[in-house]
């Protein structure tokens, strides 16, 4: 009797926790969408802000975030994948590689505002890139690197050794084996990790705060040495820094909806890649 009761209580605790988490998520989403959907329109995503940002759209912030994301990916993906390949395929297990791995894990735990400060010191000042979308993208890249390295290493670990032996046994070099067999097989896993990491980075405010994001710019510029607007910062600014906070509330919620939709879209792409890969493996 008591045992049955105990099992029941355990179940209620576990199921209840899950339910609670889903409920919180649901409430957050409902809150944002109910308050933000009224501002969503084609004009909202295709127009510049007007009248001191109390009206108009958020086009420059969308473009800024896209540009930023592309720079981050171009910087962090090749570097992170190369690093993971080195660690997993070349480096023999030793104290040094263990230290490197531990450092990478620790990097993932550093608060993002510290990356912002570091980016300011390194890219903006030392490398003289100025406050620009390039500096901000590189800073976000640094932030993303530990995650990309870790997920890529995991994807590489899932490739069975028999695949490597197939080509090595034919006299292929280790580099040929990695290029022709290991990376193509690991690509879906790598891409999933990269996309999830980048979608997280796209929502960051702190690292871009000191390195290039702007309150407002007029005119769309795609040049890398210019300041830019970004969705998360725009949202932060509308909700805390604006002179007419109450008036722009719907715009802030609208921006949040767009940001969430963007992140959701990236996650769906990652999900699709994983799904497609899984069904391919069954063949």
């Amino acid at each position: 009797m008591t045992k049955k009761l105990k099992i029941l209580i355990d179940w209620i605790l576990l199921a209840g926790s899950t339910l609670l988490v889903c409920l919180i998520l649901g409430v957050i989403l409902w809150d944002i969408f109910s308050k933000g959907m009224s501002s969503i329109s084609w004009d909202f995503v295709s127009q510049f802000p007007t009248h001191g940002m109390t009206q108009g759209g958020i086009l420059p912030a969308i473009i800024g975030t896209f540009l930023l994301t592309i720079i981050t990916t171009l910087f962090a993906m090749p570097l992170g994948v190369a690093c993971a390949v080195y660690l997993n395929e070349y480096a023999s297990p030793s104290l040094l590689t263990n230290i490197i791995r531990a450092s990478i894990r620790n990097l993932a735990g550093i608060p993002s505002i510290i990356y912002g400060l570091f980016g300011l010191a390194l890219f903006v000042q030392s490398l003289k890139l100025g406050t620009s979308v390039l500096s901000a993208g590189l800073t976000l890249g640094l932030l993303s690197l530990p995650y990309i390295i870790t997920t890529t290493e995991e994807a590489l670990k899932r490739i069975p050794n028999s695949m490597r032996e197939a080509t090595l046994g034919l006299g292929a070099t280790q580099f040929e084996t990695i290029k022709d067999v290991v990376l193509p097989r690991a690509l879906p896993g790598i891409l999933t990790g990269v996309i999830l990491t980048i979608s997280r980075a796209a929502g960051e405010t702190a690292p871009i705060l000191f390195t290039g994001v702007a309150f407002y710019i007029n005119g769309i510029t795609l040049s890398l040495d210019q300041e830019f607007m970004a969705l998360p910062y725009h949202l932060y600014m509308l909700s805390t820094q604006h002179h007419a906070i109450e008036q722009v509330r719907p715009l802030a919620y609208g921006t949040a909806v767009v940001l969430i939709a963007l992140v959701f879209l990236l996650n769906m792409v990652a999900f699709y890649i994983r799904f497609k890969h899984r069904s391919q493996q069954d063949v």
Binding site: M163, E165, A166, T167, G169, L170, D180, V181
Partner: peptide
Amino acid sequence: GMVFQKPNPLP
């Protein structure tokens, strides 16, 4: 050359 226990053609 070497032939392995489990056939391992490339994909």
